[in-house]
Amino acid sequence: MQDYFKQNGIKNIDYKDVVTLRKFLTPQGKIMSRKRTGLCAKNQRSLATAIKHARFMGLLPYIQAE
């Protein structure tokens, strides 16, 4: 599986881009594992940081009811 961000030419994963970040959350709001996201290790780390920043700013939930 190809890395989503590499495929779309996204070099910087933005914590404000909530629509993209939501693709990598489970219905409970957890960050998906690398096995499920198919990202490279570097982008998986950036994604986790971006999601955590978005959560802190109230753009994404920490937990979500299904």
């Binding site: 070099k11 404000k16 629509v19 993209t20 802190f56 700013m57 753009l59």
Partner: peptide, 21 residues
């Protein structure tokens, strides 16, 4: 709340997108 983080010039210019759901 506020968030003060390091960024870089490319990211600063190339990310005008804020897409809150």
């Amino acid at each position: 709340r506020f968030l003060l983080i390091k960024s870089d010039r490319d990211a600063a210019v190339a990310r005008p997108r804020f897409t809150p759901s």
